Simulated assay, not measured.
Amino acid sequence: MTEQTQLPKFDDGNWVKVARLAVAASVVLSGVTVAILLMAEPPDQCPSWHLKNAHSTSLWEDVVMLTAPLNIFCCFIAVRWNWFARRAIESMDRQGGMLFGHMTPPAIPVTHIMVHMCVVMSLLSQWPLFLLVTQCTVR
């Protein structure tokens, strides 16, 4: 008889739920940012949704170049958690325990790193919303 091997599950912990919640909140807040940029009239502090800085940075540019890619990558990790964890472990095994060119201590599980990645990238993706609130609101 052939034994069926069960692949290990990496998404059982509460920290995985925290990471997925952070990603979901990031997607919702990003949607709010896009809705504001589409539907609201730009204030005098941000004409045409451009910041009044040396480069006249567009908030749309920040959303497209920062928020969208980070949210897409975080959603991929959150939805395909087990697949991503297995690939990261396989990659570490092929590199002899090295992740991103540095020795990874065995005491730090891959899922721990993934949780931190999701939370930090979810926070970082909200930079345009932070700028919108701090630079474009009436003072």
Rank of each mutant, 00 (worst) to 15 (best):
C74N: 15
A19Y: 03
M103I: 03
D62W: 00
V16F: 15
M92R: 00
K52E: 00
T33Q: 07
R139H: 13
D11E: 06
S26Y: 10
D11Q: 04
S30G: 15
L51D: 05
W127L: 13
F76D: 10
R87T: 12
L131A: 07
E3N: 06
A35L: 13
L59R: 05
W15I: 05
D11I: 04
Q135M: 05
V110I: 15
G31Y: 14
S26H: 06
L70M: 10
T33M: 14
S48C: 09
A54Y: 14
I108H: 04
M103N: 06
I108V: 13
M114S: 05
M65T: 08
S125C: 11
A40G: 08
L66G: 07
P43T: 13
A78I: 08
A24S: 13
F130Q: 07
H112F: 10
T57K: 04
V120N: 14
T104I: 08
L70C: 08
L66N: 06
F84M: 03
V63R: 03
V16C: 07
I113H: 00
K17C: 00
S58H: 01
C118F: 04
Q135K: 11
R87Y: 11
V63N: 03
W49N: 05
V115N: 01
F100V: 07
V110Y: 00
E90G: 11
M103A: 10
K52M: 05
M103V: 03
D12F: 02
Q6W: 06
H112N: 11
L124F: 05
M117C: 07
P69V: 11
A22G: 08
Q45K: 06
D93Y: 03
F10W: 06
V138K: 14
L129I: 14
Q6Y: 07
T33K: 02
S125V: 05
H112Y: 09
V120M: 12
F84T: 03
A85T: 01
G97L: 03
Q45Y: 11
V133F: 05
L99T: 04
F76W: 15
S26G: 15
H55P: 00
N14C: 10
F130M: 10
L123M: 14
S125L: 07
E61Y: 12
F84H: 02
P43E: 10
V64M: 14
N71Q: 13
I72Y: 12
G31M: 12
A35I: 11
H50E: 03
K17V: 01
H116I: 06
V28L: 12
L7S: 13
N71L: 10
P109C: 06
L51G: 02
G97Q: 05
V120D: 14
F10A: 02
